[in-house]
Design a protein around this nucleic acid. Sequence first.
DNA 1: CACTAAACGAGACGGTACGTCCCGTCTTGAA
DNA 2: TTCAAGACGGGACGTACCGTCTCGTTTAGTG
Lengths: 201, 201, 201, 201
Amino acid sequence: MAPDPAVRARLVEAAYACVARYGMGKTTVEDIGREAGVSRATAYRYFPGGREELLDAAVTHGVAQFFLRLYEQIHDAPSLEQVMERGILFAHRAIVEHEVLRRIMETDPELLLPQLTVEGHQVRASIAAFLLPYLRAHGVAPGVDELEAADFLARMTMSYMTSPGRWDLDDPAQVSELVRTELLAGIVVGPEPSGSDPARP
Amino acid sequence: MAPDPAVRARLVEAAYACVARYGMGKTTVEDIGREAGVSRATAYRYFPGGREELLDAAVTHGVAQFFLRLYEQIHDAPSLEQVMERGILFAHRAIVEHEVLRRIMETDPELLLPQLTVEGHQVRASIAAFLLPYLRAHGVAPGVDELEAADFLARMTMSYMTSPGRWDLDDPAQVSELVRTELLAGIVVGPEPSGSDPARP
Amino acid sequence: MAPDPAVRARLVEAAYACVARYGMGKTTVEDIGREAGVSRATAYRYFPGGREELLDAAVTHGVAQFFLRLYEQIHDAPSLEQVMERGILFAHRAIVEHEVLRRIMETDPELLLPQLTVEGHQVRASIAAFLLPYLRAHGVAPGVDELEAADFLARMTMSYMTSPGRWDLDDPAQVSELVRTELLAGIVVGPEPSGSDPARP
Amino acid sequence: MAPDPAVRARLVEAAYACVARYGMGKTTVEDIGREAGVSRATAYRYFPGGREELLDAAVTHGVAQFFLRLYEQIHDAPSLEQVMERGILFAHRAIVEHEVLRRIMETDPELLLPQLTVEGHQVRASIAAFLLPYLRAHGVAPGVDELEAADFLARMTMSYMTSPGRWDLDDPAQVSELVRTELLAGIVVGPEPSGSDPARP
DNA sequence: CACTAAACGAGACGGTACGTCCCGTCTTGAA
DNA sequence: TTCAAGACGGGACGTACCGTCTCGTTTAGTG
């Protein structure tokens, strides 16, 4: 009868679900317990930090899920452009569709954003690190530092993800143009190196 | 005898101060009332929405103050570079120094960031609009759209404000270099004054 | 503008009306003021003792009214029996009908009764004093002290007024019998002296 | 873990004590909780009706206590006279001495009296029922109905208890005389004293 | 296969903040 | 001036959660 990891997971997901329904500020430890099919006492046994720890875990879980699925979308992309296009498309779609993120955005963006800004350093660094190999494979314009370029791309991607400006990020054609004309222009060697990757939208 | 606007202001500032001291989640309506030299009942009279309305007002007030002071710093800058340098220097200094913003950043970034991200559209638009005349006066590189350039500068500025990366934003020299090499490069006609720097992506 | 006695009266009657509507515990000084067409401040000017004084005055007023009307009913009764019959009939009817008394009885008998018990001494004494001349005119049985007899009648009348026991006090015939068989029996000389009643105060 | 009856009892007694000290209107749920060594929240858990239910319970408790002790005083009295004398003596002493009743009488007789008047029907009936066997054993005067006589005695007893008139109810001799000359006279067969009284319950 | 030790549910409890309501005082503007 | 209008401090109300705690009751693993 050791503490059951499955219970912990159920609690985190329950917290996540409750936040989706009621919003952060109105979610009760009782609610979460009920949702997880577990008594309030047990919730405190698994999360001694109480409500706060529970909610933090829920948000972290949500963000992790998001990046996991993002990774699935882009990990096998054949080119830098593909990586960025797919990534932006997915991220935008996810934010727009995913009820939970929407709910958090509406009721208390407070809790979601920090994950993307305060801890944004790490996120940005990760994105940059992920892009770097693609950037190298693609080749950068002369006089452009690869590390700086990766950092730049990460910054711009994150910026457009949360505020698209005049672009319609639901339209793959527009995303493609955004990537080529605003993000990669001036960074990579040409509109396309030449070789490889013959077919692209 | 009519509801006194000064009392309302005192309450907002008191809320602001309490958030600075105790953090958002631990600030009580009682605390705020005491700080404002006003009874709890009166706090509810001025803010029927209660705690929530009070804290919202406090954060909004704080952000407004921030932008007001930012404006004072840069409104008389003679050049685009100056505008951006002063702006970044001030913003970074403000975030680092200003106890309130720090406290909010630490305890619940949740409430501050939305103002900069969710409502970031407006903020970014404002920054871009503010920069536009300077950009026009300065002259953009051939083939560069002024509006897009302004938007780009706004995005990058906001990005560096919250995560400086490898730059030390306390050092005016580094900020100056950041502005010239990473933000304005490729946007404006010259490195500034003199000619030079004819070709850049 | 001297304090207007009419305003005081309006306030008392308003308080009385409010108690009738809302019950003692739920009547607000605001309610009373509104009912009297007077501001709450004015209510405090006329009744410095505030709510409590106001409510006391209302109850006292109500009780006074009751006795006034009771007096009207019986002051010209030709005989002792008539006095008691009319009195009991009226009192019972008043208690049953009068919405105010009912309301007080239901919601907080608390405030009405003291007037009849704690201050019951005076009330009882008054009733006894009122009955005495009739008793004398009628003539008491030998060995019966007139004062004691009046006191006894007062006690019994008050007792039956609040709890009729097996008698139906709506029925004049039953009241008449009650008076003769239970109250006057053993006190007065005969079932009725015979002669009339030439002069009585 | 189940709601503890002892806690409920403590709360009732605490309420009783507070009413004794502060008076009905000034007794706070907080006061009662403190007195009972229990939090305000728990007071509401045991008395969902809140303050009102709590105070009602206190008064009822007080009245019940009173009648319990009264019963102890008279249950083994050997004769009707004894029953009435002891009862009146005790009741009068209790009202005069017992701080709680006094306090209630002074500050808000409102709450005590109803128990004796509005619910006075039951009380009177109980007293009458209690007296009946004694009356039968003693024997009533010819032409006197036992039930009516018991009712009469109950009424008069209650009347004298709250307003003694010219009698000093602290003096056993006077009480004895009151009982014999005013209450029992005309009801029972003999003045009592001499022999007789062969069978008594 | 029973026994024991844990994890669990149920929920009582103290505490704290909430938002509401009303009291009694005081100030102010208009008749 | 005298009043209405109403802001204000104060304080109690009843409600809702929180985090802690004790209870039985399962439910496993182990001797």
